[in-house]
Amino acid sequence: MDKIISKTHISLLLSMLKTRMVEEKIVELYPEQEMRCPTHLYIGQEAVSAGVCQNLKKRDYVFSSYRSHGAYIAKGGSIKGLFAELYGKKTGCSKGKGGSMHIISKEVNFMGTSALVGGVIPIAAGTALASSMKREKRVSVVFFGDGACEEGVFQETLNFAALKKLPVVFICENNFYATNSHQLTRQAVDNIYKRSEIYNIPGFKVDGNNVLDVFKLSKRAVENARNGKGPSLIECRTYRWLEHVGPYFDYDLGYRSKAELDKWIKRCPLTTYEGVLLEKGVIRRSALDKMKEKLRREIEDAVSFAKKSPFPSVKDTHKDVYEKKR
């Protein structure tokens, strides 16, 4: 199967599977009302974060928005830390101060997420500025949605990144909906990938449900950033299966149809890729089942760790408003 080695295929599959299975576990448990934080699920979009992060090294920086479990997992964030955070526990990746919308994994340079749609875009450019000042050859990647492209800060950051030729890759995950509003009720033209052209930043469009396409395209963008050739913008066209926030389908709300959802479910990035790998013999059915079983156990462990973990103490409320080292 072309030039991609099977190790890469397995790694991509594992990343997508892990994300999907974590999200499905959240869907199962969320109605218990114990994960008491707004949770924006990523089911249907897994190929984007898996494909992009496959090209990154541990030292590279990643930022995402509030729909960030995918990027967090693909960059190597701990799922124990994730579940504990969802349950508001002290052992959570943000010590119970962040919830689903504010997750972080300092160890793997997953640098944080923002609930304010485009809020992390310039922050990612800032890490890229620091890398370039320190000549570190790190790449910064920022994931954001189609809605973020409507915020001024997106254009402001593109200009700044071009001006300073920063090692940053802008990944737009266009899932077509901002909460319940379709892209074309908000944007005059369907051309997000073109919006960097005016700054001489190359822009690309890719099928965000095809993990190999995402992987190959972002590979070039990441290499360019690392080699001092400046930023790129990639629009990955994909689809959010579930409601904007929460564990349920929402076609009953009427803003999008079940037929539309079904069309995208048929194009599921995970089952499509699984099928290809099985067919080409990159992985055998038994190995795939084993992989799933291993993940299932890992996720069960993480949930049980999270549920058993202590809540932060009353004293923790006042902790960490300021850094007090000095």
Partner: peptide
């Protein structure tokens, strides 16, 4: 954006 850039640089 530039304030965000400052924040990002400070994280590094």
């Amino acid at each position: 954006a530039v304030t965000g850039v400052a924040i990002g640089a400070s994280l590094c």
